[in-house]
Design a binder for these strands. Structure first.
Length: 229
DNA sequence: CCCTGATTCGC
DNA sequence: GCGAATCAGG
C-alpha cells in the first residue's frame, strides 16, 4: 500500500526535514521508511542535505552499460564544467551544518525548532536536565539534535503506554520559518482507522502545531527506536 | 557492524 | 507518485 501523503503528513515531513532530523528519524515519526522519506523529500523538492556520498550520474552508468559506445559524450558546447563540489551555492549555511551526528558532545538539549545549523553548534544552552549517563558506549551518541517526537498519539491503541510523564521545555521564541498557517497537524487517533484525524487547531506562528501540541511535539527524548506504530 | 542520504526503477 | 533496493561514504 502506498503511503498516503496528505497535506498534513507532508507538512510534518517538511517541518521535520527542515529541523535537520535524519531521514530515518523522520521516517520513524511518520511511520514510514527512510526511503519513503527521502523519496518524498526529493519529489517535494526539499533541499538536499549534505550527502555522505557521491554517485556517478545516471547517464554515465547508463551509457557505460548500454554498449559502452558513447559516441557523443557532451551534446552541448564543450564547456569542461568546473564540477568541483556538487554543493549548492547556498554553501555557507549548509556547510556549517554538516554532520548532525557529530554534534553535541554531551547532553543534546532541546533547541526545538532551531535549524540544524544551531543544533550542530554545541555552544547552545548549558542543559539543566543533565542526562547522567551519556550512554558511554564507544561511539558518540548519534541521536542528538533536537529529537522531537509525538508522544505516541499515533498508533498503539491496544497496547499500554509506558509513557514517562516528563514533559517540559516548551518552544517559545523561535524564529522558525513560517509555514503551515493552516491547521495543526498533530496526529490524533490511529492512522488508517476511521477515527484518525489531525488536530486542526490554529497553529502557533511558525509552527505546524497548535500551542498545546507544540509543547508535546518539542519534547526531547533520547531513544525511541521503536515505539510508535 | 552501525549509521547516513541519494538514486534508480518496478510497481 | 511511491518506495524498496541499491549504492556509497562515515
Amino acid at each position: 500500500m502506498a503511503m498516503e501523503w496528505t497535506e498534513e503528513t507532508i507538512a510534518r515531513l517538511r517541518e521535520l526535514w527542515q529541523q535537520g532530523l535524519s531521514t530515518a528519524e523522520i521516517g520513524r515519526q511518520l511511520s514510514v521508511t527512510k526511503n519513503a522519506v527521502v523519496g518524498k523529500a526529493h519529489r517535494l523538492g526539499l533541499q538536499a542535505r549534505p550527502s555522505p556520498i557521491r554517485r556517478p550520474p545516471a547517464s554515465a552508468r547508463a551509457a557505460e552499460s548500454a554498449g559502452a559506445v558513447a559516441p557523443t559524450p557532451e551534446p552541448v558546447a564543450a564547456a569542461p564544467a568546473p564540477v568541483a563540489s556538487p554543493v549548492s551555492p547556498a554553501a555557507p549555511v549548509a556547510a556549517a551544518a554538516v554532520a548532525p551526528q557529530a554534534a553535541a558532545p554531551v547532553a543534546p538539549v532541546m533547541a526545538p525548532v532551531a535549524p540544524h545549523v544551531a543544533a550542530a553548534a554545541p555552544s547552545v544552552a548549558p542543559v539543566r536536565q543533565a542526562e547522567p549517563a551519556p550512554r558511554a558506549s564507544g561511539r558518540a551518541e548519534p541521536e542528538t539534535v533536537a529529537e522531537v517526537a509525538p508522544s505516541p498519539p499515533v498508533a498503539t491503541p491496544s497496547v499500554s503506554r509506558p509513557e514517562t510523564p516528563r514533559a517540559s521545555l516548551r518552544a517559545v521564541s523561535s524564529p522558525a520559518p513560517r509555514r503551515s498557517g493552516l491547521s495543526c497537524c498533530w496526529p490524533l487517533g490511529d492512522p488508517g482507522t476511521p477515527g484518525f484525524h489531525f488536530c486542526g487547531a490554529t497553529p502557533v506562528p511558525g509552527k505546524p502545531y497548535c500551542a498545546e501540541h507544540a509543547q508535546l511535539a518539542y519534547v526531547k527524548l533520547r531513544d525511541r527506536r521503536d515505539n510508535v506504530a
